[in-house]
């Protein structure tokens, strides 16, 4: 991976993945490293745009700092939250409003041809509401899923609810409950991915949509996502 630390980021790689938040960034970096091996990651960089509200501001800055770099392919990832269709349309609208001539993708996970080619992925996919964590929770065994759900049912009996759960936030909470049960517990994704605790099964078929997306984006840049 081209940017491994908290140092300032230079945009250098032909493939750029833009994700919604810092946990998404941690996950995608780990997933790419897992898929490619550490040495093969220099052609892909992952950046967080720090939430959908800052997406356009990020894009403007990203476009300026990456001028002349020769980026071939950009993959943009965001959470569906309550509606995959609305999230995709919102992403398209944001791209359209920018004054640079990136092609706008018409379909999810299908690159819009141009320089760079632009591919969008709305998670968890398959038209479902939710977030990256929805997919991650899909990788848990049935037994663990029951345990996590039981925890919420039990806790909610003791907690006065004042509103309904947002689907994406519930998924994030479920993922953290699962992580908190480990020894050592993980409060964010750093430990589980950076320290390589085997808390998530990155080979699980539920993450196939992420792998497929990365293959599409990397393929569009001429540096396919494949181990030698």
């Amino acid at each position: 991976m081209a940017d491994e630390s908290n140092r300032s980021i230079e945009v250098t790689a032909p493939t750029q993945i833009l994700v919604e938040g810092k946990y998404d960034k941690i996950f995608f970096k780990a997933f790419i490293r897992h898929a490619l091996g550490k040495e093969k990651c220099s052609n892909i960089q992952v950046h967080s745009y720090d939430g959908t509200r800052k997406f356009k501001k990020f894009l403007k800055s990203f476009q300026a700092v990456s001028k002349f770099v020769g980026i071939q392919s950009v993959g943009i990832v965001r959470d569906a939250d309550e509606s995959e269709a609305s999230a995709f349309q919102s992403l398209r609208d944001s791209l359209k409003s920018m004054d640079f001539n990136w092609e706008i993708p018409d379909e999810m996970n299908v690159p819009a041809q141009g320089t760079p080619s632009v591919t969008a992925l709305i998670l968890p996919g398959d038209g479902r509401p939710g977030a990256l964590e929805t997919l991650l929770c899909d990788t848990l065994t049935d037994e663990l899923t029951v345990c996590v759900d039981e925890y919420f049912k039990c806790a909610e009996r003791c907690i006065k609810e004042t509103g309904s759960h947002n689907t994406a936030k519930r998924a994030k909470a479920r993922a953290r409950v699962y992580l908190a049960a480990h020894k050592p517990p993980d409060t964010d994704f750093r430990d589980s991915f950076y320290k390589k605790y085997d808390y998530w099964n990155l080979e699980h078929p539920a993450l196939g949509i992420v792998r497929e997306f990365l293959e599409v984006v990397s393929g569009a840049s001429g540096f396919p996502l494949a181990r030698e």
Partner: peptide
């Protein structure tokens, strides 16, 4: 080559931790 940053781009470059040195 030279990339010129207007102040608003510079500000967001700092915010998103892009290299400006």
């Amino acid at each position: 080559r030279c990339r010129t940053y207007s102040p608003d781009i510079l500000e967001s470059a700092f915010e998103f931790n892009f290299e400006v040195r």
